[in-house]
Amino acid sequence: MPTVFGIPMAALFGQVVLGCVNGAFYALLSLGLALIFGLLNVINFAHGALYMMGAFAAWLLLGYAGIGYWGSLILAPLIVALIAGLIERLLLSHLYKLDHLYGLLLTFGLALLLEGLFRQQFGVSGLPYAVPPELQGVWNLGFMILPIYRGWVVAVSVVVCVSIWALIEKTKLGAILRAATENPTLLAAFGVNVPLLMTATFCLGAALAGLSGVLAAPIYSVNPLMGSNLIIVVFAVVVIGGMGSIMGAVVTGFALGLIEGLCKVFVPQVTATAVFVIMAIVLLVRPAGLFGKRR
């Protein structure tokens, strides 16, 4: 069997795929966080809870409405976006005039509250969600065996991230979003409804978290704590990429997933801390993050 540095190729590629899958989630989640932070200046600690609710929405839609994976892929992000819209309008929007810290505290409290509610209702043991029949099985690529569903997750993440990037960099709406991030007061004086734009952006970021949740449901079990386990790494991704940088969030998300995967193969004992070591180094060398502009 062929090896690289004494590691079997198949094991190496297996970890690379796993790294890409993790990276796919990091990218989608940190992209949403970056969008929200860029425009609303809110560090959304509830992002993990929104991701968790996306997975639960898929599970509940299946159990109570008979709506399967494909329907949930559209509906669950919409449901999460709607809930997020209410949170933004009813709670968060009242805090913009105050220090950033209040938004952070509010979303942190919300995350605890939401996770607590789901834990009480569904326990912590994790609920199964099946891979849809169309995506079951594996592809034999010759040099490795690729589970189709994992390939699907990576493909969806790449397509969604590139689409959002294009939306922001190449369209009129994107120009308005960039302008709102840079100088919202003047944009409002031009006649743009900036508060509405903020709500929409929060909903979009939340929808991305909800979508990640649906994608995750068949891989990880549906669990009230699935978000809080992931979100700490995602915050590290956002910091490394540069707060509020779209490109930074996506590239760093995939890169860190991969690095983690490779660590598991070559230096398994540091896997859990690798991301945070990288974060510390980046913060020392480039405090604004790899892609960030100093504010």
Binding site: K172, A175, I176, R178, A179, T181, E182, N183, L187, F190, G191, V192
Partner: peptide
Amino acid sequence: YSALSVQENLMLP
């Protein structure tokens, strides 16, 4: 706006 091109600035309002 520095995040916008000249044309995007022109078309913004």
